[in-house]
Amino acid sequence: MAAKFTAADKTRTPALTQSTSRPRYFFFYGSLMDPEVYQTVTNSADPPVMQKGWITGFRMKMWGIYPALVPEAGSKITGTFCMVNSHDHFMDLQEYETGNYTPFECTIFTEGADQLDDSPTEGWAGSPASKELEGGVFDFERYQKYFKPSVVRGGF
């Protein structure tokens, strides 16, 4: 498993290297907005403290039931964020996101009017024009009702 993560480190963007070297706020806009999903994926003893926020500079598309961000100026994406303190948790998140996603740097805007610069989020690793992506919006409630149980009960 360690060899797998070492190989992944070499193929990721600079955001991954920076993200694993120190605690950072990480922005979520899909299934990981759910604290229980995050806790399951990272095998954390306690649920994360999720806060509401948004980012700009991306557009949301859908890859099946999952949202995928692609760079696009002027768009606003709402979601949640939390502090990712450990290299292991960051790597668990990378494994959950699969190779179809890659880290992007963003600025998180908080409901308290703060800006959290130099924060990672995951976006589509392929071409923004990929035929695998469709228009649409992520239905978080539908995800929680129909798809979340397979993650939190059976692992991912």
Rank of each mutant, 00 (worst) to 15 (best):
A2R: 15
A3N: 14
A3I: 15
F5I: 13
A7L: 14
A8Y: 15
A8I: 15
T11M: 12
R12S: 12
R12A: 11
T13L: 05
T13M: 00
T13V: 00
L16Y: 07
Q18T: 11
Q18F: 09
T20L: 15
T20G: 14
R22A: 11
P23M: 02
Y25W: 03
F27M: 04
S31A: 09
M33A: 00
D34N: 10
E36L: 10
N43G: 10
N43E: 15
P47Q: 07
G53D: 04
I55P: 00
R59W: 11
R59M: 13
K61T: 03
M62H: 00
G64A: 00
P67I: 06
V70M: 11
P71N: 11
A73Y: 12
A73F: 13
G74R: 04
G74S: 02
K76S: 12
I77A: 05
I77W: 02
T78M: 04
T78P: 00
T78Y: 04
T80M: 10
F81T: 05
F81P: 08
C82V: 07
M83G: 05
V84Y: 00
V84K: 04
D88E: 15
H89M: 09
F90P: 00
D92L: 10
D92A: 15
D92C: 13
L93Q: 08
T98R: 03
N100G: 10
Y101V: 01
P103G: 07
F104N: 05
E105W: 13
D114T: 11
Q115A: 11
G123E: 05
A125L: 05
S127N: 08
K131A: 14
G135Y: 08
V137F: 12
F138D: 02
E141L: 08
R142S: 12
Q144E: 14
Q144W: 02
Y146Q: 11
K148D: 04
K148S: 03
P149H: 02
V152H: 10
V152M: 09
G154E: 13
F156N: 14
